[in-house]
Design a binder for these strands. Structure first.
Lengths: 159, 159
DNA sequence: TCCATATATATGCATATACAGCTAATCCCA
DNA sequence: TGGGATTAGCTGTATATGCATATATATGGA
């Protein structure tokens, strides 16, 4: 079929495009997942990232920017920017920690709490849809997620 | 250890933060991979995305924006913007297709070709590093990538 | 107490990514 | 052949993400 490709100059380059690059494969999977979950949450005006942020703010006793960034294995500056639309729309508020005024302690507003609960129902639908897709594809893919979680389980720690 | 978390209001919310959200887990894995590969390629002034773009431009007989976007399962507009820094830095050129002037046919410059070859060596080092990490974690994770590729193998087709 | 160091956050800058909507070119059918 | 439908690409807008750096606060010695 494919007379459209030219020969590779090095084995590495051939491998890169063959689908075996861990990074490109993972990123492609990520794009696909985000599209699916974001679509499921769109009616609530939230992205999957924003839903996760709201959930962390809800479930940590003292949610700060750096703490959530550590838990999500993200750069603090990215986290900081992700909070802005949520504050702008009145879903969370923030105040300096009395014990350490460098820290910014976050909290859900009532509206933020309602949005979180409502969106979580549609999150679950997306989650179930992926589960069904996995069943169609066989058991290997189920193990996939366990593997990803193992890889990512350097975080853990206390809250 | 963790007295820092509060109880979940719904099972869904507890699950969301437990690490079993396919979307969040995949995205976290993606962030980790991108950091690793981008660091490995930094000395060449390329990101992993840009390396992949150069490789596709090199290996398709008639590389166009939409074709590469389809192959990478990305939105065409995102692809279009990703090409800009590469054109700006003189690594690729573009010209309208003579047969269909809507299409933009891409080509590597000499410098683009050199960068591609040079960066591919360091790509391979990153790839091998991930392989080694997987071995430490056991065989499950090896199967992980096969699963991701199966999931993502709706593209295929002829370039 | 004062300064060097470390920590928490924010900003500047750049890429990555998607969706909606726009224009130009092509295609297809009545 | 004329015009609607389709396709390719671009731009506007918004979030996602990281690195380098700036600022403010805290901390720990000398």
């Amino acid at each position: 079929m494919s007379t459209e490709r030219r020969p590779a100059e090095t084995p590495a380059l051939a491998e890169l495009l063959s689908g075996s690059c861990y990074c490109l494969a993972t990123r492609r999977a990520s794009r696909r997942m985000v599209r699916l979950y974001d679509a499921a949450l769109a009616e609530h005006g939230l992205t999957i990232s924003q839903l996760a942020l709201l959930a962390w703010v809800r479930y940590l006793r003292k949610p700060t920017v750096q703490k959530i960034a550590d838990l999500m294995e993200m750069d603090q500056s990215a986290l900081s920017r992700g909070l802005m639309p949520l504050e702008r729309e009145g879903l969370i508020t923030s105040a300096p920690d009395a014990d350490d005024r460098r820290k910014k302690v976050l909290a859900l507003t009532d509206e933020g709490g309602r949005r979180l609960i409502a969106a979580a129902e549609d999150w679950e639908k997306a989650q179930e849809e992926v589960t069904r897709q996995q069943e169609k594809l066989g058991a290997d893919v189920a193990r996939l997620m366990a593997g990803i979680n193992d890889l990512a389980k350097s975080e853990a720690g206390s809250d």
